[in-house]
Amino acid sequence: MNSRAIDVLVGVFMLLFFGAMFILAMKVSNLTSLTSSAGYTLVAKFENVGGLKARASVAASGVKVGEVSAISYDPETFEASVTLTIDETFSDTFPTDTTASIYTAGLLGEQYIGLDPGAEIDMLQDSDEITLTQSAIVLERLIGQVLFSRSGGS
């Protein structure tokens, strides 16, 4: 094996590596889709976030506009404080009376936050709080409520 052939094969090897990294970056992982770096943040307080996790998507009318960047517990209001990162292209898009609700995608799917825009003229700015929120539906509570209302009615 002469040295020229070795150089060529090592070059091919490097190209294959770059090809593999390209596939891993563009096809396998979400390098191209929305990332948390570019955008503005909103805060929403929920009584109960259910199974919501960080990096869950934030959607308006089913279109992804951002993602959940952090979830923490607020010991003063006894509520879960969810930080949303909304993509820059959607700045000045959501009115101040936008409702944030936690939905489940399908019966077994992941939970995500849906934004339903209101009618105000003022728009939500960076680090504003979404005051109108609707918590996740927890199945046990739902069953409890149904049982309670049935026994109350009879």
């Binding site: 992982s29 979400n30 889709s33 990096r55």
Partner: peptide, 15 residues
């Protein structure tokens, strides 16, 4: 296949 994969895999923390 591809979109579910992209949703779950992060470039920095997984790859």
């Amino acid at each position: 296949y591809w979109s579910q994969m992209q949703n779950a895999t992060s470039f920095y923390s997984d790859v």
